[in-house]
C-alpha cells in the first residue's frame, strides 16, 4: 500500500500535480506573508539548483556561491538604482555578469582539487563580501542599495504586489527545474557525474576535465545570479550581508537535507527548511543550533538526504518485492517439477 503510494511519487505525471498545487497556492494561502515566504523559498531554491550543478553533480564544493548570488543582486540593484536602467535589461546584465565572473573564477579555481578548491572559493566569496562592504563609491558600502526597480510588468501586471511576483518567481523556478532535468539526463549531465565519481577515470574516458568543470561552474554561478537578480527585484533592498558566507552554508544545508545530486532534492530541502524556520520564529537567530548538528547527522547517517534516501528505499523495496516474487515463482516451479517426477 505505502509502497504503491510512494511509487506514485516517482511517476512523471506527479510533477503536474505539484505544478497545479504551486499555481493554486496563493488562492489557498491564509495571508500575503505566506505567499511572500513561499516566493522567497522559490528564489533560494533556484540558487540551490545552481549549487547542485557544481557540488551535487560535479562534486566540487563551491563556497563562493552566496557571493555570486549577491553579485547578481548587486549588478541588478546598482544598474537600476544608480544608472536608472529598467529591470529586464539589468536582469540580463546580471546574468551576463555572474557568468563572466564565474568563468574567470572558474578557470583559476578549477585547476585546484578538492580541499584546495573549497578553500579557494571560500576566499573568493570573502573577497566579494569585502568589496561590497568597503568599495563605497560603487556599492554604497554597509548602507546597501535602496530604490531597486521592481520587475517591469509593461503596464499589464504590477510586480510590487506579492502575488504577481510569486508567479514570476514560480515561472523562473519551473524553467530552472526543466533545464536542470534536461541537463541531468543529457550527455553533459552524465559527464559531470563521471567527473564527480573520479577525475582520472573520467579523463581516461576522453572527458576534457577543465572544459566540463568550467562549464558546470559557469552554469552554477549563472543560476546563482538569476536567483540574486530575482531576489533584488523582490526585496528591493540589498546590503553586503547578502554576500555573507552564512548564506552559502544555508544553501548547503538546503541541498543536503533535500538530497545532494538529485533532481527534486533542492526544492524539497529549501521549501522544507524555509518553512521549518518560519514556523519556529524564535529560531531565526539560533537556527544553527539545530541545523549544525542536523548537517553532521545527515552526512553521517543519510548523506543522500530526503529525496536520495527515499529513492534508495523505494529501489530496495521494489527490488525486494521482485526478488521475493521470483523466489516464490522458483519454489513453485521446483515443487511442480517434484510433483511431476512423482507422477
Amino acid at each position: 500500500m505505502w509502497l504503491k503510494l510512494a511509487a506514485l511519487l516517482t511517476r512523471p505525471a506527479t510533477k503536474y500535480v505539484f505544478i497545479a498545487l504551486a499555481l493554486v497556492f496563493p488562492l489557498v494561502a491564509q495571508n500575503e506573508y505566506q505567499i511572500y515566504v513561499m516566493a522567497s523559498a522559490f528564489v533560494w531554491a533556484i540558487a540551490v539548483y545552481g549549487l547542485n550543478i557544481i557540488t551535487g553533480y560535479c562534486g566540487q564544493l563551491n563556497l563562493a556561491h552566496g557571493g555570486f548570488f549577491a553579485l547578481g543582486a548587486y549588478t541588478l540593484g546598482l544598474l537600476t538604482a544608480d544608472y536608472s536602467w529598467s529591470y529586464w535589461p539589468a536582469f540580463v546584465a546580471a546574468l551576463a555578469m555572474t557568468a563572466v565572473v564565474g568563468f574567470f573564477v572558474g578557470i583559476v579555481s578549477l585547476r585546484l582539487k578538492e580541499h584546495y578548491f573549497a578553500i579557494f572559493t571560500l576566499c573568493v566569496g570573502f573577497i566579494m563580501y569585502m568589496l561590497m562592504d568597503k568599495w563605497e563609491e560603487l556599492t554604497h558600502g554597509p548602507v546597501g542599495v535602496r530604490n531597486i526597480a521592481p520587475p517591469n510588468g509593461f503596464g499589464l501586471v504590477d510586480f510590487t504586489e506579492t502575488t504577481p511576483i510569486y508567479y514570476l518567481v514560480l515561472v523562473f523556478l519551473m524553467l530552472t527545474m526543466w533545464f536542470i532535468g534536461r541537463l541531468s539526463r543529457s550527455l553533459l549531465g552524465r559527464t559531470f557525474t563521471a567527473i564527480r565519481n573520479g577525475d582520472e577515470l573520467a579523463q581516461s574516458l576522453g572527458i576534457n576535465l577543465m572544459r566540463n568543470k568550467v562549464l558546470a561552474f559557469v552554469l552554477s554561478t549563472t543560476f546563482a545570479g538569476l536567483a540574486g537578480a530575482l531576489y533584488a527585484g523582490m526585496v528591493r533592498f540589498i546590503g553586503p550581508e547578502d554576500a555573507n558566507v552564512l548564506h552559502t552554508f544555508d544553501m548547503i544545508t538546503y541541498l543536503l537535507v533535500g538530497g545532494i545530486g538529485t533532481l527534486s532534492g533542492p526544492l524539497v530541502g529549501t521549501i522544507g527548511i524555509v518553512w521549518l524556520t518560519q514556523s519556529l520564529q524564535f529560531m531565526e537567530e539560533y537556527r544553527m543550533i539545530l541545523f549544525g548538528p542536523l548537517l553532521v547527522f545527515l552526512v553521517i547517517f543519510f548523506p543522500r538526504g530526503i529525496v536520495g534516501s527515499f529513492l534508495s528505499w523505494l529501489h530496495r523495496r521494489t527490488q525486494g518485492k521482485a526478488e521475493a516474487a521470483a523466489k516464490a515463482q522458483q519454489s513453485r516451479d521446483t515443487t511442480g517439477r517434484r510433483v511431476n517426477n512423482n507422477a
Binding site: 562534486g59 564544493l61 578538492e114 552554508f249 537556527r287 544553527m288 543550533i289 553532521v296
Partner: peptide, 19 residues
Amino acid sequence: SPPIHDKIAAIGILLFLEA
C-alpha cells in the same frame, strides 16, 4: 566517506558552536 562530507560536517560543527 567522500571528502566532501568531512567538509560539510566541519561546517556543521562551526555553525553549531557559533550559534
